[in-house]
């Protein structure tokens, strides 16, 4: 065998390895999805989405969970995005990255991003639910989830800011711009697609979180939709978890139906992320 033939063989071998691994992962996903759809699809209806939970599977719906998720995720976005993006700008544009303090901060943010979510639940319970007496309200839930996704938003935004070449900053300074004008007028718009992607991915993570919300006391049987941030609530994954834990087979099936709704929400969010990215990437670097 010549060297050339051997190299081509290696190339093909590697390609096939990649292919097989990819299909294996996809296969598992497909099995999971087909199981969920075969169980839950027949329960999907407008009534299912527009009814409150019930002791009877055929009357149960996810109205309170859907609205709870919308309330919680909206407030989570309101709390986490401004703080996360501003922190990223401070760290990248204003702080001195050589200082010990900033390096310590950076390491801590990275560690926080990898912390188990249940720990955030305990923090939220102590700090928000009991500490400032918000109880198991929408506010407690969204503040807790905000803490949970804040590090990810910070890190993703930092990466997006880092990716803006310095030549753009110098070009802006050479026009007599001040630092805040360079940041708001040039760096932020250039980094926005990356920031948006990070934000939406972390919000998608927040919308699927169960454990911290159970800890802070999200209810699993809620026969009303929250009317304000201080109301009690439940969310989709908590509702699904609750149904999946019941002994009756029908409840497992409506849990699957709930999962389909949750997947649809996630899918829509990712679609929105892609669309936003496309829109802002008109001026690709």
């Amino acid at each position: 065998m010549t060297t050339k033939e051997r190299r081509m063989k290696q190339d093909m071998l590697f390609r096939w390895c990649c292919r097989i691994v990819t299909f294996m992962a996809l296969g598992v996903l497909l099995v999971l999805l087909s199981h969920i759809f075969s169980q839950g699809f027949k329960w999907l209806s407008w009534d299912f989405i527009n009814s409150y939970p019930s002791r009877f599977a055929d009357q149960a719906g996810i109205k309170s969970a859907v609205w709870g998720s919308i309330w919680v995720i909206s407030f989570t976005a309101i709390f986490s995005v401004p703080f996360g993006v501003a922190t990223a700008f401070f760290l990248e544009e204003y702080s001195n990255s050589n200082s010990k303090f900033v390096r310590l901060l950076q390491i801590n943010i990275a560690n926080l991003a990898g912390m188990p979510s249940i720990i955030y639940g305990l923090l939220g319970l102590t700090l928000f639910a009991r500490g400032i007496g918000l109880g198991g309200s929408v506010l407690t839930g969204s503040l807790t989830l905000s803490l949970l996704i804040l590090p990810v938003i910070v890190i993703a935004s930092q990466e997006a800011i880092k990716a803006v070449p310095n030549s753009i900053r110098y070009g802006a300074y050479a026009m007599g711009a001040r630092k805040w004008q360079v940041i708001v007028g040039q760096v932020l718009p250039a980094a926005l697609p990356g920031i948006m992607t990070g934000v939406i991915l972390s919000l998608s993570r927040a919308i699927g979180e169960t454990a911290p919300l159970i800890i802070i006391g999200a209810l699993s049987y809620v026969a009303f939709t929250p009317l304000g941030p201080f109301d009690d609530f439940t969310v989709l994954p908590v509702q699904i978890y609750n149904w999946a834990g019941r002994p009756q087979e029908e409840f497992h099936e409506i849990a699957s139906a709930g999962i389909i709704v949750l997947l649809a929400v996630l899918f829509t969010m990712n679609l929105v992320a892609i669309m936003i990215r496309q829109k802002f990437q008109k001026y690709r670097m």
């Binding site: 070449p165 030549s167 753009i168 110098y170 070009g171 802006a172 300074y173 050479a174 026009m175 007599g176 711009a177 001040r178 040039q186 718009p189 250039a190 001026y283 690709r284 670097m285």
Partner: peptide, 21 residues
Amino acid sequence: SADIRRQIGMVFQKPNPFPKS
């Protein structure tokens, strides 16, 4: 210094247009 840069402009070695229209 920003005021100086308004009166004394600069063109760089590598073209660096802003990522805008």
